[in-house]
Amino acid sequence: MARSKKAQEATAAAGAGRDQLLKYYRDMLLIRRFEERAGQLYGMGLIGGFCHLYIGQEAIAVGMEGIRRPGDQIITGYRDHGHMLAAGMESRAVMAELTGRAGGSSRGKGGSMHMFSTEAGFYGGHGIVGAQVSLGTGLALANKYSANGNVAFAYFGDGAANQGQVYESFNMAELWSLPVVYVIENNQYAMGTSVERSAAETHLHKRGASFRIPGEEVDGMDVEAVAAAGAKAAEHARSGQGPFILEMKTYRYRGHSMSDPAKYRTKEEVDEVKKTRDPIEHLREKLDAAKVTEDELKAIDAEVKRIVADAAEFARTSPEPEPAELYTDVYLEAAE
């Protein structure tokens, strides 16, 4: 694609053109099919431990990626597979990390919650709820220190929004006008506890008010709305005006992790969201309006299917890490 990044951003923000809509569709579908396959591999015992799926929340990672510039950083919590794929990490390396194999992005030593790619500007993958908010603010501090014009995007959930260090970070970010966009993925449940049961102020975009940080509520199931809000927030941060908070209203279809029986919400509630707010179905209506043909979509479906099947096969057949790998990457050799 010959268009400049800036032109793409403008399009993404203003209501996307046909190509951009198709890209959104492909990237969201890739995340959904990838996650479904991850769930299946978990069920087969090929993936162990914790595995938090991103199904239902695809529009956020994909919409925000549409407005990210080269050099901008991303950091998130443990529900991270979707962000990695959106950031452009190899689906093979992500899936092989889930199976704990040598071909994984951390060579099998990180797992579902701990993957990184400095090349893709993706700084993890963090398992302690809220820690990524301070770390992401530190990425922004480095951007300002180096005057490189980059913005850090720090993602966290409605659960992390109650952690103390989030507010310590908000304070410093605004105090020092750091270029950071805080993206709250409010999927309405912190594990099994609903926002209503855990938050005194449930409108999480207002949580920056006492630090003078502007915030906005966004329909996180609408990829174009996400991109438009993201572009505005990034511009605010990039232009030296400091942090911005986006509260993305979204929903996760699956349990908190694979072993979540989901007794805290009704099946009807989940079905209602799937039926009326699904981000991919929602986009299909726009694709129809943009006169995208059924054949074009089928071709994308087939491509995604191939990528996911290939990633799963790679993840299944990639060798276990060598025993000697146990002791690597604990320390770096001093260079001097």
């Binding site: 950083q73 950091i75 700084y123 820690a131 908010v133 301070s134 770390l135 992401g136 603010t137 530190g138 990425l139 922004a140 501090l141 480095a142 951007n143 220190y145 180096s146 103390g164 260090q165 310590e168 970070s169 304070n171 410093m172 105090l175």
Partner: peptide, 26 residues
């Protein structure tokens, strides 16, 4: 004051900012 930075009394937060800045190469 770019390189000698007074922080608020907020150890958890500024330690995290420091680690984040280190991850970015500082």
């Amino acid at each position: 004051d770019r390189r000698v930075i007074d922080t608020p009394i907020t150890e958890h937060g500024f330690a995290g900012l420091g680690v984040g800045a280190a991850m970015a190469g500082l």
